[in-house]
């Protein structure tokens, strides 16, 4: 639904986005990750036709954003970074304005009703936007992006500035739309990617460093698939190491203060094997748990190089 082809953008002499290409299909919830200033927003601004790329282009649906921008812009809903809104208008007037540009006159009323329900803004519908809290503003921004029920959504930091409950609400909303839409969202909160996305693109210094499923991304963690064994004392630790060390499936055992971290070969699962060995050889283990592999560790590693 979205095809990004060799997009590059220079700001003066600085290369902000460097030859970025990817495709987004229906059903994809693409998490666009990267440190601040990595080129996430610039890429989104080029896809949505706000910025003119220095080279390359993007196709939305069938339409090239540079050759037929109007047709392309009809197909997506876009929430810009920091959710800029016409502050002096009331929420209703604002949505009516957007609906006027995107829909037929007879469809407007229903659409406004629908998005004000899904985004929970009914209670502020007649308030001027300048009087709203950050959370409401962000939801009004979401509402305008959804007003024409687009098949494609481009959301630049959709949960920015929301409290935990509101974040949860937005995540649920995105999850509920995931199946029938193609969604690109940028964030620097990794737990969000875990909660919402089925695909991750990591971008840094304008370049794509990774484009894969969250599971694959997680596999980049050096301790992926590891099993933690808590032991009684160094003696039992030694015994366990001797027994597990002979197993072909196990690559490495790291010992640190009464904890053994057992790492698998080729990132294949070894939990079943270890559990059966503990039973069989009657090993003295206090607890067994899988090693948590946080996405932010992988992210840090990728973007620090």
């Amino acid at each position: 639904m979205i095809e990004v082809k060799n997009l590059s953008k220079y700001y003066g002499n600085k290369l902000a986005v460097d030859n970025v290409s990817f495709t987004v299909h229906k059903g994809d919830v693409l998490g666009f990750l990267g440190p601040n200033g990595a080129g996430k927003s610039t890429t989104m601004k080029m896809i949505t036709g706000f910025l003119v790329p220095s080279s390359g282009t993007a196709t939305v649906g069938e339409h090239d954003i540079r050759k037929s921008p109007k047709q392309a812009k009809e197909l997506f809903g876009y929430l810009p970074e920091n959710g800029p809104l016409y502050e002096e208008m009331t929420v209703y007037e604002f949505l009516d304005f957007i609906a006027g540009l995107r829909l037929k006159p007879e469809e407007k009323a229903n659409a406004i009703q629908r998005v004000s329900e899904t985004c929970h803004i009914q209670e502020v519908i007649d308030q001027p936007i300048e009087t709203l809290s950050k959370g409401y503003r962000q939801r009004v921004g979401m509402a305008q992006a959804l007003i024409h029920d687009p098949n494609i959504l481009v959301l630049d930091e959709p949960t920015d500035g929301l409290d935990p409950n509101q974040k949860h609400g937005v995540r649920n909303l995105i999850a509920s739309m995931a199946e029938e839409k193609a969604i690109i969202l940028s964030t620097h909160i990794l737990e969000e990617v875990d909660a919402m996305c089925n695909r991750i693109i990591v971008i840094d210094n304008g370049k794509i460093l990774a484009d894969e499923k969250p599971e694959e991304f997680r596999k980049r963690h050096p301790h992926f698939g590891g099993v933690r064994l808590e032991v009684e004392n160094s003696e039992s630790a030694k015994k366990i190491k001797d027994i597990l060390g002979t197993e072909k499936m196990i690559q490495k055992i790291i010992e640190e203060d009464k904890v053994l971290l057992v790492l698998p070969k080729d990132k294949k699962p070894i939990d079943a094997l270890i559990l059966s060995l503990i039973k069989e050889k009657n090993l003295d283990v206090r607890s067994v748990s899988s090693q948590p592999t946080a996405l932010d560790h992988v992210f840090k590693q990728l973007t620090n190089n």
Partner: peptide, 14 residues
């Protein structure tokens, strides 16, 4: 100043 031109120019209007 308010950034709304980003909103305006990503709507279907030239």
């Amino acid at each position: 100043r308010s950034g709304t031109w980003e909103l305006l120019f990503t709507l279907p209007i030239s």
